[in-house]
Nucleic acid binder design. Structure first.
Length: 308
DNA sequence: AACCCGTGGTA
DNA sequence: TTACCAAGGGT
């Protein structure tokens, strides 16, 4: 069986590739059978619901997002509802999902949607990209999943599937490359609805089968077409993927500080923040950072609170 | 381009 | 236990 390569229409590639339409059929059939029943994929899900899920899923696993997503949409079923509340409430509601700047940006996106788009999540990719907290991936994801448009959706799952099936390596590079974008675009089905189904299907395949740690190649529908399989599953030999040390970092201190503020509904005296971390210099730096990011609001007399 | 930004689960 | 990983974005 041939491995996957780009169609001959674009840049010339070595060797015959599996025809793209066959790949589309394989992935769409697999998805129909194995897709998780996630609430933001349900028929009744709104574009706002999709957008909220995408914000929450930026670096946070699905399992932890599920309950947070339901609670969020129950409280703020529309962008206007969120925009009418204080940004600090978004930060508080975000809870322990991590990277709380996402909550602030989601609030900012809601406000921008009200201001620029009459309260309706925009369908246009460029308009989505212009919203705070919406980057290349999220804009494509919302346009594709919510509005069934044709966009290359390149997240960590898709990048990994392409790295293995197309390029024949275990892991993609640290940063998305032009070659990856080209591959994603070339393999994208022409028909918008099919492209949207393909996008979520490849992503789901990466999330459930072609996983980072221990891929279940035995259950992978692309195995006969996978370049990495054909090459004998060579282990990753590129530059070291950056680690994420956490203990003792400013991020840890910021997390501890913000946890105190989330738990308190009124202003908090500086003294109650001081107890979360012994090193004064780092503690002050972390608090200053939170203020600079707009996650914390300093008041007079050494009190602090979530932004109003 | 490299680095910063939280939190929790898994091998 | 340590290290890696999770539907990224902003600077």
């Amino acid at each position: 069986m041939p491995t996957i390569s780009a169609p001959p229409s674009a840049a010339p590639r070595s060797g015959p590739g599996t025809p793209a339409p066959l790949l589309h059929t394989i992935v769409l059939d697999w998805y129909r059978e194995h897709a998780r029943d996630l609430p933001w994929r349900a028929d009744g899900a709104t574009a706002w619901g999709v957008m909220v899920s995408e914000f929450m899923l930026q670096q946070t696993p699905v399992k932890r997002v599920l309950p947070a997503w339901a609670a969020w949409l129950e409280r703020w079923p529309t962008p206007a509802a969120l925009a009418a509340d204080a940004p600090g409430e978004a930060v508080r509601m975000w809870g322990r999902l991590g990277y709380p700047r996402r909550a602030l940006r989601l609030h900012g996106a809601a406000a921008a949607i009200v201001e620029r788009h009459g309260g309706e999540v925009p369908e246009d990719h460029a308009a989505l990209l212009a919203l705070p907290g919406v980057g290349e991936y999220t804009a494509a994801a919302v346009a594709s999943f919510a509005f069934r448009q044709r966009h290359a959706v390149l997240d960590t799952n898709v990048r990994r599937v392409f790295a293995r099936a197309v390029t024949g390596v275990e892991y993609p590079a640290n940063a998305t490359t032009a070659a990856e974008r080209r591959t994603a675009t070339e393999l994208l089905p022409d028909h918008p609805e099919t492209a949207a189904a393909w996008a979520v299907g490849v992503m789901e395949l990466g999330a459930l089968v072609c996983t980072a740690r221990s891929p279940e190649c035995g259950g992978c529908p692309l195995r006969p077409h996978c370049a990495w399989q054909r090459a004998g599953c060579p282990p990753y030999d590129g530059p070291a993927r950056r680690g994420q040390t956490y203990e003792g970092t400013d991020r840890q201190v910021r997390g501890k500080l913000l946890a105190v503020l989330r738990a308190s509904h009124g202003p908090v005296p500086r003294q109650r923040l001081d107890v979360v971390w012994p090193e004064e210099i780092q503690r002050a730096r972390a608090l200053d950072g939170l203020v600079a990011d707009g996650l914390v609001e300093p008041l007079a007399d050494g009190f602090y609170r979530l932004p109003q």
